[in-house]
Amino acid sequence: MSDTPTIRIRGLTKSFGDKLVLDGIDLDVMPGTSMVVIGGSGSGKSVLLKCVLGLIQPDAGTIEVNGQDLLRLRAGALDAVRSTIGMLFQNGALFDSLPVWENVAFGLLATHAVTRRTARVRAAEVLAQVGLDASVGDLSPAELSGGMQKRVGLARAIAGGAKILFFDEPTTGLDPIMGAVIDGLIVDCVKRLGSTAVAITHDMASARRIGDQAAMLYKGRIVWQGAAAGLMDSGNPMVDQFTHGRRDGPIQMELRK
């Protein structure tokens, strides 16, 4: 395994008005590993992810993907980096106006990489990889259950053979069994593609299933980082309180100030 991180974040800072959301984040994600970022609502997890994806412009800091600073890349080079990235959004973010198969093959069709016929065949293959029948491809996203929408979102993220995968709250809104199924699919996909993955979640069961490494974000800072297997007995009072869901502890005390 290479010593160079696939994703290297240094001093990432972002404010919205007076509210400091990210306060000098430093984070490395090594090749082939799955990093889970945990934290409460409003801790800055989604903003961190959106900064890395280039959806939000940070105020300061650097974000390197395979050694390339995303914040300094020109549009063409940025698109080239983005083509290696897949993203599963919290609510699926499937395109309502397109059938499922076009959602899955969207990245291929948008870049005119393949014909529509080939894209359709590829969509059926990827749908099978996430446990969905090819006939689902003809449905509209509105006709799918929440779990199926997540699977289609995952299929869309991996359809282009992404080398870096991002997952935003992959199990939110799902029952525990479906959550476990989605986590299993994510782990399978990441292994099969040999990808590097970053997931943000506040579902501890999901975090332990998906992650090799974990980091906890609190008030815009990384307050703990370590092996995901050690999340439940990290020895860090903030992490312990969060992972065990205790009312009392440093996080609640901070909130009462």
């Binding site: 994806l53 959806l55 083509s83 990235i85 973010a93 499937l94 948008a110």
Partner: peptide, 9 residues
């Protein structure tokens, strides 16, 4: 969905 478009190049 608009953010999703950006992530899909």
């Amino acid at each position: 969905q608009i953010d999703a478009l950006t992530t899909l190049s």
